[in-house]
Nucleic acid binder design. Structure first.
Lengths: 127, 127
DNA sequence: TATAAAATGAGAATTATTATTATTTTTGTA
DNA sequence: TACAAAAATAATAATAATTCTCATTTTATA
């Protein structure tokens, strides 16, 4: 993987983003500082960064992949009302990989837990 | 939801299927007995059945949704080598929903654990 | 049996993502 | 520093999975 300015900008933009953006959202933000960046470049780099373990790709939340600069073990929740994505502590499922590998005899390369429902704020608004 | 013969056939086909098929695969099987069935009808019914809790839609395994007639709590593993989908016992993550709801204060409606890696058979073939 | 609601088949449309390609940038070496 | 090979880019075409549209048919009910 050679250096590329675009990749650096993409990673920095993702890092400065508190949410768990989709490619489309990142693209809209990147356009401000990098008006000539191509959507293909964005996708290519996001995939490369994920393959190299520098970021994480989150699938199964909604129709798009989301991206996360936090590679520490944690899981995700998407609110069906407001669409926000939240982190869930890995404490909810201790030793998940070891347990599963022991139980199945499979070798695990990637895994994720994805929840959807109603977040605290949206529950409050329903009262 | 009114009765429809097509929906009944779709559900029966899914039930008699040991794998966790995609819509495309189900379509190819259904075509044999229901040559006029429409792909739109298949998708519409799979979604309806899932919304009504009669089947489960599994997302995040690969580029397509997979469908599962087994609605008991369990998780999934997809082998990156052979593409097969396996069930994983819910014992690997006890009290997952309660723990997560307690920890987050969110209301969980849907959740899933998805693993990918190499299955036992494919590991053996690598030796 | 008439009617309204729901479902269908066919195919167009949409959405997210990947592939193609000519050009540009990066990098290791002469 | 210049140069060639490898890698990356922008622009856009292509693809894959799924949903939408709509005229017609089926189902449930009064």
């Amino acid at each position: 993987m050679n250096y590329s300015r675009q990749r650096e900008v993409i990673l920095n933009t993702l890092k400065s983003n508190v949410v768990h953006p989709t490619a489309e959202y990142l693209y809209s933000v990147l356009k401000e500082t990098e008006p000539n960046i191509s959507l293909a470049t964005l996708y290519r780099n996001l995939n490369q960064l994920a393959e190299n373990g520098i970021i994480k790709k989150i699938d199964g939340l909604d129709t798009s992949s989301h991206f996360d600069h936090n590679t520490h073990e944690h899981y995700h929740f998407i609110c069906e009302k407001c669409g926000r994505v939240f982190d869930v502590s890995s404490d909810i499922a201790p030793n998940l990989v070891k347990k599963t590998e022991d139980e199945t005899g499979f070798l695990i390369n990637k895994y994720d837990i994805v929840f959807s429902g109603t977040c605290k704020d949206c529950l409050k608004n329903l009262e």
